[in-house]
């Protein structure tokens, strides 16, 4: 497995470091800047109900009712740029094997080595989980640095931040698990990635529509973003156990299904 890990590290470290630094910077800026615009944002939300609905979809609470300074802090964790960075990383990583190796034509070389497909899948997944953790940790570092440089007023406590981070990592793993499943079924990396991007955007759309459309509200439980609610955690201070169970179940089930498919499928290069 060491050789495979060395290979994966060689191929992914630059992207991971780049995205982790980007996440750190974005979180630093958001944490530092957002509190200074609370009043302006409140006015903006009052004028633009669409933005209000979008924020509610992202934050998992009714922004109109509960737009406090503390809740505003949670925007750092759901800002589209933050989510885009996390999803880019997890989708990029989880489509590498086997879809990426097949579309690159390198799967023949990889599987000519005396390693089982299970080992290949697990070593890739191990690197994904670890590098995802690095990404999240650097994101937290950016947040802490932003809070330290800026005003400490109305900041959530460390335990609440930890709960939000765990919830975020759960979402990261759930999106990655689903990506692993589609990558295992696909011969083309781009196709697998497009499907997952579609699912993630669909999930956001479902959350957005559920703010004002009854049928979408009934289906909202199907979207992954329904189980990522930093604002709720910041408001209540409670660990999102139910959400985490759902996210981990989705991540685990999809990852295992992806592994089974990877082990049993025919490998045809294009």
């Amino acid at each position: 497995m060491r050789g495979l890990i060395a290979k994966t590290l060689r191929e992914t470290w630059l992207t991971t470091v780049f995205l982790a630094c980007a996440l750190c910077l974005v979180k630093f800026l958001l944490t530092f800047v957002l509190p200074q615009f609370q009043k302006e944002m409140g006015d903006l939300l009052a004028q633009l109900p669409m933005v209000q609905a979008m924020l509610s979809a992202l934050m998992g609470i009714d922004v109109e009712e509960e737009f406090t300074a503390r809740v505003l802090q949670s925007l750092v964790w759901v800002h589209p740029v933050v989510l885009a960075i996390l999803w880019t990383h997890t989708i990029m990583f989880c489509t590498r094997v086997p879809a990426g190796e097949i579309s690159g034509g390198t799967i023949d070389f990889l599987l000519s080595l005396p390693v089982s497909r299970r080992t290949v899948y697990c070593s890739e997944s191990l690197m994904w989980v670890v590098s995802g953790l690095l990404l999240i940790v650097l994101g937290v570092a950016g947040h802490v640095a932003g809070a330290w440089v800026g005003s400490m007023e109305n900041r959530p406590g460390p335990l609440v931040v930890l709960f939000v981070v765990v919830n975020q990592y759960g979402l990261y793993l759930a999106v990655g698990g689903v990506t692993c499943l589609f990558a295992a079924m696909s011969n083309r990396r781009g196709r697998a990635a497009a499907v997952v991007v579609g699912i993630v955007l669909g999930s956001f759309l479902l959350n957005f529509l559920s703010q004002f459309w009854q049928p979408a509200e009934r289906l909202a439980f199907l979207g992954l973003l329904e189980y990522y609610r930093p604002a709720e955690i910041v408001r209540s201070g409670a660990f999102p156990l139910g959400d985490m169970i759902v996210l981990m179940l989705v991540a685990g089930a999809a990852w295992v299904a992806g592994g089974v498919i990877m082990i049993r499928r025919n490998i045809c290069t294009l």
């Binding site: 290979k7 191929e11 690159g104 034509g105 390198t106 023949d108 070389f109 000519s112 290069t269």
Partner: peptide, 8 residues
């Protein structure tokens, strides 16, 4: 050695 060899 694959027929259509592609390496990293």
């Amino acid at each position: 050695l694959p027929g259509d060899l592609r390496l990293y």
